[in-house]
């Protein structure tokens, strides 16, 4: 395999998700180039960057959803294949067709397919897990609702409930706040913070720079390449934002963003 990365440092075995020298391409142009990322255990890490920066691709490549051109991924210091059951993935809400014939509970139960395998019938325990996951996102009254009738915020909630049903240690979420109402955003962030307090690690692609400081403790900025990663206070700086977003953000805007988190 082509080794683009020159650093021979080994992957951190403590990290829930460590990535080294990751490159991905859908065609000729790389979507990600030689990205190193070490997610701190028990952290809430935001992945930020402009549109098309490769944020979704980063999550997908970490999970083997899209093939890697090069690079290594380790999950809790081990190979992805053996640790899949410890990861819950919440894809972008818009990536599925919500007219699919399923009700809310059907979708949440999909979180248990990894455990159930091809044929095992859905048990009482499975249903209880699904019910509990729905209650955690405030959707317990919607179990039998057709998914096509849900609002954007409700769709996001049941995607989150499906991930909760997986009872994972590492949560990877792709834009969980995109197009949701304020009440849902508040409910989701409360839930994610609870997960963190329960010793889980949360990594979320995040598009709203004004809430990065309030919601997350760590941040990784990417734009095809990794720009910076670390605790929000150290990394979420004007210089880094300018580097990641180029001319798209004015300095005044960035200053306001940095202040946003401080009240």
């Amino acid at each position: 395999m082509l080794r683009l990365h020159q650093n021979d440092q080994t992957l951190d075995p403590q990290s829930p998700l460590a990535i080294r020298g990751l490159s991905v391409s859908y065609g000729e142009k790389p979507a990600l180039f030689s990205v190193d990322l070490t997610v701190a255990p028990y952290s809430m890490t935001a992945i930020v960057g402009p549109n098309g920066a490769g944020k979704s691709t980063l999550l997908k490549a970490a999970l083997g959803v899209v093939p890697r051109l090069s690079g290594q991924v380790s999950i809790f210091g081990r190979a992805l294949a053996s640790e899949r059951h410890r990861i819950a993935y919440v894809p972008q809400r818009a990536s599925v067709d919500w007219d699919f014939p399923a009700n809310v509970r059907d979708v949440v139960l999909m979180g248990l397919y990894g455990k159930m395998g091809l044929l095992r019938r859905i048990s009482r325990d499975d249903l209880a897990i699904a019910e509990d996951a729905l209650a955690q996102v405030g959707m317990q009254d919607f179990a039998h609702r057709q998914i096509g009738q849900l609002s954007g915020g409700q769709q996001q909630r049941i995607f989150l409930a499906r991930a909760l049903a997986q009872n994972a240690d590492l949560y990877l979420l792709d834009e969980p706040f995109a197009g949701v109402d304020a009440a849902t955003e508040a409910a989701i962030i409360t839930l994610l913070k609870k997960l963190k307090d329960a010793g889980k690690t949360v990594v979320a692609v995040h598009h709203d720079l004004s809430t990065v400081t309030a919601y997350f403790d760590h941040v990784a900025m990417i734009n095809t390449r990794l720009i910076a990663q670390g605790p929000v206070a150290q990394v979420f700086t004007t210089a880094h934002l300018q580097e990641a977003y180029g001319g798209r953000l004015a300095t005044a805007q960035i200053d306001r963003l940095r202040e946003a988190g401080h009240y």
């Binding site: 997908k60 899949r84 990861i87 993935y89 894809p91 990536s95 091809l118």
Partner: peptide, 19 residues
């Protein structure tokens, strides 16, 4: 295969993430 097929048809990315 019907369970795996349903999941794939609804949410291919999630299906892949489950392995």
């Amino acid at each position: 295969l019907h369970r795996a097929m349903t999941l794939t048809a609804f949410d291919e990315n999630f299906a892949r993430a489950l392995g």
